[in-house]
Design a binder for these strands. Structure first.
Lengths: 212, 212
DNA sequence: CTCAGATCTTACCCTAGGGTAATTTACCGC
DNA sequence: GCGGTAAATTACCCTAGGGTAAGATCTGAG
């Protein structure tokens, strides 16, 4: 920005700091554009640095992606677990809303991070693909436990129904996060409230007229 | 397949036929892997042909994509319009379910086509990006008219709510199509019935416990 | 002041993939 | 049989982008 093309040599930024900067930039780029469309040079440019430095600090593009994925996966997984574990607590909110609130809170400051988990297509048979599948699977498993309970309670026991409902829930969540990214001014709390409003209306829509 | 590497020269397949084959293959590839990750050579190989032929018949990769996008966009748009126009008819199904049924029916035989519309990221400032945005916008407008009505009926008039609900509906639809692709044996009718089941359960979930 | 080590860049290599030119083969009407 | 045309291929060019090697600049300790 300030200097168009700085000469070689150190800029006084310690390695750990630079790594944090690069990681943040890469997470945003991967989340926004996906794996393929993200270039290492673009990530580097974002923090005012050039490509080789990124490689020196993180290795290959895939390793850089993994370095982004790992913390994001852990944090989101933990947030969802916490929200679901609080099920019996004397909370006013339903489990789905608690989960969403947990996600919004955890994602605030780096909303694109959600899409790092779903940054398709990843190089096939790669460690990146395996780790991403791992985190997606773990999150899906949590969601599936919720949907399965729900369906059983309603007298449905088709496992395909449970699986489809899980897909639907994930799609809904993803869509809400995407909308949120388009509206940066919205706080996590405002989002949660909006979701509560929409749920009650949308639920009525779906329930009311679904029969036969 | 039969001949590992056929010599040059015609194979007796007329241009129009080959074009249909290539178009079908390309639609599937673009839908499955997205624009970037789809290679012209892979599309060509799928119909037992080589890259230059595809370029001769369709021009650039972007033009090939457009040739896929255009009919898909028109067909899906028409299907949704038809489903929404039938609103006042003496049908048992609700509008959302009718729309889904229309989509499933239209997509049967080429389910990945839905994702051609959302094959991000497209080359920026390209005709492809403009046309895709056009169809997405048209579909969103239809959805938005539905959600806006719905919210007004419920006493909510925040335009942001309507927009978010539209996002949610699109995400839901996309997720259901994705699940369907994972389960090729499911007929469009079976899908519609499944959605009806899930809607009544899911709706109850969302409505019941959303308050404050 | 000088040397050592950390930071950062320039210059380069290599492959994948979009795109084109020229050529080869098959078919069809005469 | 014999052009002429349509259908395909082989062989090539070119760029974008991942990745590396080597050198340049700064900073801090002694």
């Amino acid at each position: 920005m300030t200097s168009t093309a700085s000469r070689a040599g150190t800029k006084g930024v310690p390695r750990a700091d630079r790594q944090r900067q690069v990681l943040a930039a890469a997470t945003e780029e991967f989340g926004r554009h996906g794996y393929d469309a993200t270039t290492v040079a673009a990530v580097a440019a974002r923090v005012g640095v050039t490509k080789p430095l990124v490689h020196q600090y993180f290795g290959s593009k895939e390793e850089l992606f993994l370095a982004c994925l790992e913390p994001v996966g852990e944090r989101l997984l933990a947030a969802i677990r916490a929200a679901m574990a609080a099920a019996t607590a004397p909370t006013a909110k339903s489990t789905p809303l608690r989960v969403l609130h947990g996600l919004f809170t955890e994602l605030e400051g780096q909303r694109e991070a959600w899409f790092v988990l779903y940054a398709d297509p990843l190089p096939p048979d790669s460690e990146a693909a395996r780790r991403a599948a791992h985190y997606r699977g773990a999150i899906d498993a949590l969601a599936a436990s919720g949907t399965a309970d729900l369906l059983r309670g309603a007298g449905l026991d088709d496992p395909l129904d449970a699986d489809a409902l899980m897909f639907a829930w994930r799609g809904l969540t993803t869509a809400l996060v995407r909308w949120w990214i388009h509206h940066p001014d919205q706080s996590p709390e405002a989002m949660t409230e909006r979701c509560a409003r929409l749920f009650s209306v949308g639920g009525a829509l779906l329930t009311g007229v679904a029969d036969s």
